[in-house]
Write a protein that binds this DNA or RNA. Structure first.
Lengths: 197, 197
DNA sequence: CTAAATAAGTGCAACGACTACACTTTCATA
DNA sequence: TATGAAAGTGTAGTCGTTGCACTTATTTAG
């Protein structure tokens, strides 16, 4: 049996989905700040209390699936092809994500969604915090990959810079060029202190 | 006459100062989240409405003077000694700020203040936002210094990375070493694409 | 010097996000 | 089938924040 999920979990997942759907629809229609948490709950036919049992806050309604981003990031470093440096691997990983992004960009609904996020300060900041939350894990993965101590500063710096590079890539028209220029700064210095990685 | 300041402006500045003092004292004593905005207003003998006429929000009560940080940052790039690269200039600027910091660290009151900021998520995030707000100005200054177009990606990247480096420097025991390692990543790549700057 | 304009400060009522609480309903399971 | 866990509800409340109509003090102009 693929999923031994009882009716209970199914209904739970369903209300969660209803809430996420309601939030997205209303936010896209009226704008994030013009929609109250009560509106979302009503639209999903659920109480406000229930809404907060499922989502930690109003912003979280929009970012339904954020898991295994961290795992993918760590894997990009750990399982990079031989001969590829860590900065290169991270650049490729970001670009891959970016193009997966661009595929969906045809969907006007998806485009409207990213516009919503970028133009709403609360959502922009929240997304950034969620993303940079992976810094410690990435830094650890990098340190492990080069055999450096866990709290090595240059590994932490590379992790932070690489994560911050994402924002630069996202907002410029030609992602490939932006990524190349941003990571060019990192690759040389990294190669100098960690030859062969 | 040095300051033709009328009684009005004087009293205004005074209540503002009372509020900042009250906030700092109460936050240090009880912790940020355990003190309401009403408590601060009462302690300063002022109405809550007045408090919000002086400060844009609860977090702003703690960061009273944030001006000319940006000017100093831009000046560090623009007026760097000849022969010094831009990343070097930024590293030195951050280290200078850091040691000015360390001077005050003897004062236990000041140490408690920075502990408060670092341990309170709301304040930590606010400080970070205030700091990174200068990214665009710094990027522009860098671009101007090397004669690149205003929206040059590598200039924007250097600006962002340099600002982000601050957090790495602040939290590690030996700031000098941390700064050197973090900026080592940037200097080589920068020198490769912008020789002589 | 007085009167009108301006700006600081006040108190109250309200809004929106969020939480605590006591409660009912629904499902899983021993 | 009974028992307990977990999902959901409604109410009332806290806290940060804003709008509004108002008083009071200071500046400026006539």
């Amino acid at each position: 049996m693929t999923e031994p999920t009882g009716r209970r979990e199914r209904k739970k997942a369903q209300t969660r989905q209803s809430l996420a759907d309601a939030a997205l629809e209303l936010f896209l229609e009226r704008g994030y700040d013009q929609v109250g948490v009560k509106d979302v709950a009503d639209f999903a036919d659920v109480s406000v209390t229930t809404l907060f049992k499922h989502f930690s806050g109003k912003e979280a309604l929009v970012f339904d699936q954020d898991d295994d981003l961290e795992a993918a990031l760590v894997a990009a470093v750990r399982e990079r092809p031989p001969g590829q440096s860590i900065p290169q691997a991270l650049r490729e990983h970001l670009l891959l994500k970016q193009t997966q992004f661009a595929v969906h960009a045809a969907d006007p609904r998806f485009a409207a969604f990213t516009r919503l996020v970028q133009e709403t300060p609360a959502l922009r900041d929240y997304a950034h915090r969620m993303w940079t939350r992976h810094e410690a894990a990435l830094a650890r993965a990098i340190a492990e990959a080069v055999g450096a101590p866990e709290d090595d500063v240059s590994c932490a710096a590379l992790a932070r810079f690489a994560l911050e590079a994402r924002g630069l890539i996202q907002r410029h028209a030609e992602p490939r060029r932006a990524a190349d220029e941003a990571f060019a700064l990192l690759e040389h210095g990294w190669a100098a202190s960690h030859p062969g990685n």
